[in-house]
Design a binder for these strands. Structure first.
Length: 457
DNA sequence: CTAGGGTTAG
């Protein structure tokens, strides 16, 4: 323990305690400081506000602001930006706008950070037009944009599927002398990968080098993920090897991307090795890493280990998320434990998670594979939202049960509403009809599907 | 105090 000698060292100490979420000790240090005459300043309180906001939410941040005022210390723009970023983190748009107003009311001029955070908040709640207004406002008010301003803009555009606009903005800015950072490229590459614009991605990857940037682990992980998504598994794994060869340090993102792809393609043993390497590397594991591990255990058929890890994770104080539970529900279904899956679905509901399409799709698929088609149909009909996975499982299930006419009807309604179907589903239905003596109907279904597809595209 | 990549189902 080092001795607090000045307000600066007090602030450093409090900041590091806040980082490890030890607010109790942070408060103790504050009191100790006051006792020996080292008084907190605006930085001290801003740090505390951030700590409280992160741990307990915005209201607790505001109560620290109250204490700050009582201590006779005036909040500054950073104080308000801290509160603003907390509201934005929780996607509280209206609260963000209120904070912005309050800031103006108390006579604090918002800076570029304030605008950046507000813009980001608009994007996060799916209001790109409003975000763009904030963006223009920055220039209208003669505030100098920061690199983050543009990066937030690019991220927002990409995440809202405006990748073309993002690219246009880049080109426009470049014509005006803008030099994109590596982060900017990473943002655009991710967006373009996710909208399937592989060629443009390749161009940008070259451009990175033209600017003298060296792709980092994030660039690699992004492209690797894109390969896996586009069923280019070997290319993805090659990128992984290249990363290794070039000496990049792996983090949870890289390990989980690879392990996830291996698990999805049934390469369980390799996934096991990958996760083992992750363990041995000694990196801090977060919830996504644990989810991937739990998924590995499930795929290896070690359900007890999976649930054991769930307990451990919760004991460590990490919050399990919707992925954790969905993975477990799927694991239970695949192990034939329908009751367990049902119990976990109820538990999910009790825990306040919103209804989860993926989990229900797993459940339906599990029921179908166990031959419980009646029950599966019941669940299917009770579902308000369905997607291609739901239909695929139920169609396969109906075919296994020999109910090809119903399967054909569902398949057609699928195509007619523009839901993509698997070739194997169509095949199963057609073959089933033909095999059971309904050759003409099979032909009719086939041509109807073709027609529906034509009408839809 | 703001910006980038990862985990679930057919």
């Amino acid at each position: 323990m080092f001795k607090i000698l000045s307000t600066t060292s007090l602030n450093i100490c409090i900041a590091s305690l806040c980082r490890v979420k030890n607010l109790k000790n942070a408060e103790a240090v504050l009191i100790d400081g006051i006792r020996v005459g080292i008084l907190p300043d605006v930085v001290t309180y801003n740090t505390l506000i951030d700590g409280y906001c992160r741990l307990f939410g915005i209201d607790s941040g505001y109560s620290v602001l109250g204490r700050m005022r009582e201590a006779g210390i005036h909040p500054n723009v950073i104080t308000y930006n801290t509160l603003l970023s907390c509201a934005s983190r929780y996607r509280l748009l209206y609260q963000s706008l209120d904070i912005f107003d309050e800031m103006l009311q108390v006579g604090i001029l918002p800076d570029v950070w304030s605008y950046n955070i507000l813009m980001h908040c608009f994007f996060k709640v799916g209001k790109p037009d409003e975000a763009y207004r904030v963006f223009k406002d920055i220039f209208l008010r003669n505030i100098y944009p920061s690199p983050a301003t543009f990066n937030i803009m690019f991220t927002g555009l990409c995440k809202n599927w405006y990748t073309d606009n993002a690219l246009m903005l880049l080109r426009n800015l470049q014509r005006n002398g803008f030099r994109p950072e590596l982060v900017t490229y990473n943002i655009l590459i991710d967006g373009l990968c996710k909208s399937g614009k592989w060629r443009t991605v390749k161009g940008l990857l070259k451009e990175i080098l033209d600017y003298g940037h060296i792709p980092n682990a994030i660039t690699y992980t992004t492209v690797m993920k894109c390969c896996f998504k586009n069923k280019m598994f070997n290319e993805g794994l090659e990128i992984f090897s290249e990363m290794k060869a070039k000496g990049y340090t792996f983090d949870g993102f890289a390990y989980c991307t690879v392990a996830g792809a291996l698990l999805r393609t049934g390469r369980i043993e390799e996934a096991n090795q990958c996760m083992g390497n992750m363990f041995r590397s000694g990196i801090d594991l977060d919830m996504v890493c644990y989810n991937t591990l739990i998924n590995l255990y499930c795929k290896e058929g070690k359900l007890e280990d999976a649930f054991g890890l769930l307990d451990e994770v919760e004991k460590m104080g990490l919050e399990c998320d919707i992925y954790t539970h969905t993975i477990l529900i799927d694991g239970l279904c695949k192990a034939g434990n329908i009751q367990g899956a049902q119990r976990h679905l109820k538990y999910l509901n009790k825990m306040g998670f919103r209804t989860n399409l993926v989990a229900f799709n797993s459940f339906i698929d599990g029921l179908c594979k166990l031959g419980q088609i009646e029950y599966a149909m019941q669940v299917f009909e009770s579902m308000k939202v369905k997607d291609e996975f739901t239909y695929s499982s139920i169609v396969q299930g109906l075919c296994s049960a020999g109910r090809f006419h119903l399967a054909a009807r569902l398949l057609l309604s699928c195509v007619r509403s523009g839901v993509r179907i698997l070739r194997s589903d169509k095949k199963a239905v057609i073959r089933g009809l033909r095999f059971t003596g309904f050759g003409p109907q099979a032909k009719k279904v086939q041509s109807n599907i073709r027609l529906a597809k034509l009408l839809h595209y």
